[in-house]
Simulated assay, not measured.
Amino acid sequence: MVRIGVAGNTAIPCFQVIKSKGYTITSKIYFCVDIIEDATYEFIAEKDGNEFIGDNLEEVLGLITMWEYRGQNQEDWRANHSEHLEYRNVLDDSIVFDKDGNQVDENLL
């Protein structure tokens, strides 16, 4: 069984996969109020004039994968009605937690 999430150990493998697909990767750093700890990143993968942009490399790889899977016509990226309903069902079935990580009874909300 695999359980993986975005963490400190996933960025570099994603970087390597993106590079192996022939993309050039650049990044930008935006500082907020001159406090380095509040910096945000933007990663750009570029190939053949196409750019995929995200806040982290995992997002960028996800966008590239969506491009490869859904097709290069941006109209194909739009969710159809059944996809939208399926997505809404997953959200409706979400487990609710409070800020301390305790599960909350949805009926009490």
Rank of each mutant, 00 (worst) to 15 (best):
Thr10Glu: 01
His81Glu: 11
Tyr23Phe: 14
Gln103Lys: 13
Leu85Ile: 14
Tyr41Ser: 14
Phe15Gln: 07
Asn50Leu: 15
Leu91Asp: 03
Pro13His: 05
Val90Glu: 05
Asp93Gln: 02
Glu51Met: 15
Phe52Asn: 08
Trp67Asp: 01
Met1Leu: 04
Gly54Lys: 02
Ile25Lys: 00
Glu68Gln: 12
Trp77Glu: 03
Gln103Phe: 01
Lys47Phe: 07
Tyr30Asp: 09
Val104Glu: 11
Val6Trp: 04
Leu108Tyr: 07
Ile12Val: 06
Phe31Gln: 12
Arg88Thr: 12
Glu59His: 09
Ile64Arg: 04
Glu46Lys: 10
Ala7Asp: 06
Asn9His: 07
Ser94Gln: 06
Asn89Arg: 15
Thr24Val: 10
Glu83Asn: 02
Glu46Arg: 08
Tyr41Asp: 07
Asn56Glu: 11
Asn56Leu: 10
Asp92Glu: 14
Val104Phe: 04
Lys19Val: 01
Ile95Leu: 06
Glu42Lys: 08
Val33Asp: 14
Trp67Pro: 00
Tyr23His: 12
Thr24Ser: 09
Ile18Gln: 06
Lys28Ile: 10
Gly5Ala: 12
Asp38His: 11
Ile36Met: 09
Gln74Phe: 14
Gly62His: 03
Asp98Phe: 05
Trp77Leu: 03
Ala7Phe: 01
Gly101Trp: 03
Val90Ile: 13
Lys19Leu: 12
Arg3Glu: 03
Thr40Asp: 09
Phe52Cys: 11
Tyr69Thr: 12
Trp67Cys: 05
Gln72Tyr: 10
Ile25Cys: 07
Gly22Ala: 00
His81Gln: 07
Thr65Leu: 02
Met66Trp: 11
Asn56Met: 08
Glu68Asn: 14
Gly5Asn: 11
Leu63His: 09
Asn50Glu: 15
Arg78Ala: 05
Glu51His: 15
Ile25Thr: 03
Glu68Tyr: 04
Asn9Met: 04
Gly101Pro: 04
Asn107Pro: 08
Gly54Arg: 06
Lys21Tyr: 11
Glu59Lys: 13
Asp48Gln: 11
Ile64Met: 06
Gln72Gly: 05
Gly54Gln: 06
Val33Lys: 15
Phe43Arg: 04
Ile25Arg: 01
Asn89Ala: 11
Ile95Gly: 05
Val17Pro: 05
Gly8Asp: 12
Thr65Trp: 01
Asp55Met: 14
Glu59Met: 13
Glu83Val: 04
Met66Thr: 10
Val96Ile: 10
Leu63Asn: 08
Phe43Pro: 00
Asp34Ser: 09
Thr24Ala: 11
Val96His: 06
Gly54Tyr: 09
Ala39Thr: 02
Ser82Arg: 13
Tyr23Leu: 07
Val90Tyr: 10
Phe15Ser: 03
Val2Cys: 12
Gly62Ala: 03
Tyr69Cys: 06
Asp34Ile: 00
Leu108Gln: 14
Glu42Val: 04
Phe52Gly: 14
Ala11His: 13
Asp100Pro: 01
Arg3Ile: 15
Leu57Met: 02
Asp38Thr: 13
Cys32Glu: 10
Arg78Ile: 10
Cys14Tyr: 08
Asp105Arg: 12
His81Arg: 06
Leu108Trp: 04
Glu68Met: 07
Thr65Cys: 03
Val6His: 00
Lys99Trp: 08
Ile95Arg: 08
Glu58Val: 13
